[in-house]
Design a protein around this nucleic acid. Structure first.
Lengths: 246, 246
DNA sequence: TACGACCGCTCTACACCGTAGACACTATGG
DNA sequence: CCATAGTGTCTACGGTGTAGAGCGGTCGTA
């Protein structure tokens, strides 16, 4: 906006993204990383091309050299996040796959907690891009999990079903958990209890009983418990009918 | 926009929302119903205050009498949808709860398929409103499911955990399914296959194997199968430890 | 009947948004 | 030395949400 830089302010590396307007040349990666930082700090709705550009000390239009759209920028963020999801490589038979999937779930949860505002992107963005056309980084986790499942003994169709149960539950859980998370950050205990207290006892007896329970929510334990359910189910399915009849 | 109405075009009932600009007085319900119709037809991003107002034959500012915000309008839509989710009343012991939950899941899936563009709302909107402060209509499903679970024998904490596994998976599944849905509407088989074909075989062997399977996706069967997994898991948990030690 | 409050709605205006199109500067390579 | 390509800027347009003032009708009360 104001700051007129002579083009090379300090070391030209891309480590910028530190808060102050940037000097060195832009790059897709720098743009995306700065965007993620912006979202982490100020939430998704604060991510406008103009804000992002300001943070980079550039004209808004400069961003369009590195992503054709605001939409595609969002896709880029989702991809970058998904690509950080480290999934163990398939192999080392036995019941290893159960542990691998469980661990991967926990890993992803940690990622999600670091970037809570990005999770909605993960859920809504893919809705607009055909599976086959998504950026490779976004498909890699899917491929890896499929590999683990195939290795475990599922046929292609079975692996897909299993993946869907797994990933579906994982996303569902995270959304549930982040809900609490974001909420509690603002309101803390009291607000929550107050909120519940407002409910007419006649119509919401069970919900009102939950005030106490809701307050000490342990997302990690809950995810683990849910994973146990899912994985047991998958295991049973694998043993019952090693090959699903189409 | 153009059309100047003399204030009473035809019968003043609220059955408007039929496509042409409306006559009779507005009402929150009419606004919301028209909004849902707009979203169903043109997608979520087409829902602007101005478009909605135009469809109602009113000035945009008129809408603010019935929802303080665009945001709260979105919340209203989510509530209206959730409130349409018919969940059987708890009761009639035995294993009935398993069937009830399964049926409820299928019912919700049908609802979701009727309004695919609204589902993202269901997922993202609650993130901004503390649980206790959500509109009652949005909490009713939660209360009903808790009732079923309590009736089945879960204690409050257990019921909450069970609910989360259930609802989490349900949402996750729907998002997965709608993904396919929306995609296939546009591209149909060929595009999908083409998309997958693009992937480097070396890095995505498993994904490429799935082309065929992806094409005959049966969401209903898959949901049912997933529900079997989840419900079995819940049942086992109920029998193993009828009361979870906090 | 008269009057004041209120309700439903419209008008105007503002700040912000995404982005098309033309242009400037700089670096490169023949 | 000039052509070319890549990067970033400027300006402008049509769209968005919504604040604030104003306007006509209806209703409660006198």
């Amino acid at each position: 906006m104001f700051r007129i830089v002579t083009r090379q302010d300090s070391s030209p590396g891309e480590e910028a993204a530190g808060g102050s307007p940037t000097r060195g040349p832009l790059s897709r990666d720098l743009v995306l990383r700065t965007a993620i930082q912006l979202v982490d700090e100020d939430g998704l709705e604060a991510l406008s091309m103009r804000h992002l550009a300001a943070r980079l000390g550039r004209d808004p239009m400069a961003l369009y050299r590195y992503s054709t759209n605001r939409e595609s920028l969002l896709d880029g963020l989702a991809e970058l996040l998904l690509d950080q999801w480290a999934i163990p490589v398939a192999g080392s038979g036995g019941g290893a796959w159960l542990d691998q999937l469980r661990r991967a779930a926990h890993d992803f949860r940690h990622l999600a907690l670091q970037h809570p505002h990005l999770i909605p992107l993960l859920v809504t963005r893919p809705l607009s891009t055909p599976l086959g056309l998504r950026p490779l980084g976004a498909l890699r986790p899917l491929e890896r999990i499929l590999a683990i499942l195939r290795e475990a003994g599922f046929d292609p169709a079975g692996a897909l079903h299993a993946y869907r149960a797994y990933y579906g539950f994982l996303m569902g859980h995270l959304i549930n958990e982040l809900e609490e998370f974001v909420v509690n950050a603002d309101e803390d205990e009291i607000g929550l209890r107050l909120g519940l207290h407002r409910l007419p006892r006649k119509d919401f007896p069970n919900l009102r009983d939950l005030a106490a329970v809701l307050l000490d929510y342990d997302g990690e334990a809950e995810l683990d418990q849910g994973m146990t359910i899912i994985l047991h189910g998958l295991e049973a399915q694998l043993q019952d009918s090693p090959v699903t009849p189409a």
